[in-house]
């Protein structure tokens, strides 16, 4: 592997200073499960790697009345390991349970997954569905962007030089709400999404109608894709096969995949609709507190 320097600052200011001091050749490191691999394969060639795991601000994991704060370096296992967070923000917990195996989940972070900005990232559709906002710190101070606006292309995002993600903040969940993420993979585990779908729904008190819904797709466009039309197809509608089919059609329509070794255009568009239906049904079941048949790998 190519030679590089390593720093592990203890404060956000120090991290920003290190990243700003050598912006072109410095890279932040959280779990490192993507970054180290990219350095090994020479996709990235940083001279300086800044380990952000020792910065307290990036390790916050707080569930409060006004929502969830998720530090950018918090490893996946802490999210599904907290029963309250896993219940309230179950789409993110779903994502975290299927990113790699146990070892990877002990290192890899949702923040890192977002910053790697892969189109097939498993946690980003969940962030978008749950209306998360991304808190960014840099030489110019702090700013926030919506999760759906963060990624700008494969491996590309809105971070300016010297900036890093501090945390991801989620609004409080509605009283009757449910969320879910699942992906299609050729195998049943340890794989990368051919299509991924995250959905969050809010139902009325009776649980019979959609109040609102947010749906996002992975691996069908250059970036994780927020499909506003799919949510709009559900909002105000009764929970019905017709409404869910309309949302699925919107998702299928929004998908602009490519043919590659993981799937064809035909396959990915079709699966976008199939998974959207399945994910909405699961989110609805969760909102209603029903037993669901979902298990990892389906």
């Amino acid at each position: 592997m190519r030679d590089f320097e390593y720093e592990a600052p203890m404060s956000l200011d120090d991290a920003v200073a290190l990243l700003s001091g050598n912006p072109a050749a410095a890279k932040p490191l959280a779990g490192g499960t993507d970054l180290i691999d990219h350095i090994r394969t020479r996709r990235l060639e940083p001279d300086l790697v800044v380990d952000v795991k020792k910065i307290p601000d990036l390790n916050v994991l707080e569930l409060g009345d006004d929502g969830l704060r998720l530090g950018a370096a918090v490893p996946c296992y802490r999210i599904y390991g907290d029963p309250q967070i896993a219940a309230a923000y179950s789409a993110v917990a779903d994502s975290c349970r299927i990113i790699g195996g146990t070892q990877i989940q002990s290192r890899a972070s949702v923040g890192g997954n977002l910053c790697n900005s892969g189109p097939a990232a498993d946690s980003t559709p969940s962030l978008i569905a749950l209306a998360a906002r991304v808190v960014i710190a840099g030489p110019g101070g702090r700013r926030e962007v919506a999760a759906e606006d963060f990624c700008t292309g494969p491996g590309q995002n809105v971070l300016e030089s010297g900036e890093l993600v501090v945390e991801i903040v989620f609004p409080a969940r509605p009283a009757v709400g449910g969320s879910h993420y699942r992906r299609f993979i050729p195998r049943n585990e340890m794989d990368i999404a051919v299509v991924g779908v995250g959905a969050a729904v809010e139902l009325d008190e009776s649980g019979q109608s959609f109040v609102s819904a947010r749906i996002a797709l992975a691996a069908v466009a250059p970036t994780p894709l927020y499909v506003e039309a799919a949510g709009a197809a559900l909002a105000g509608q009764p929970v019905s096969d017709e409404a869910i089919a309309a949302a699925a059609a919107a998702a299928r329509e929004a998908a602009t995949p490519i043919d590659d070794m993981r799937g064809t255009v035909e396959f990915r568009k079709h699966i976008s609709g199939v998974l959207t239906e399945r994910v909405i049904r699961e989110a609805v079941a969760r909102a209603r507190g029903e037993e669901t048949g979902y298990r990892i790998g389906q």
């Binding site: 050729p186 195998r187 585990e189 794989d191 990368i192 070794m261 993981r262 790998g297």
Partner: peptide
């Protein structure tokens, strides 16, 4: 060769 790794060369896992 595009898939010279166990990520995209899919042997069955114990789940399969």
């Amino acid at each position: 060769l595009h898939n010279a790794s166990f990520l995209d060369y899919r042997i069955p896992t114990c789940y399969d």
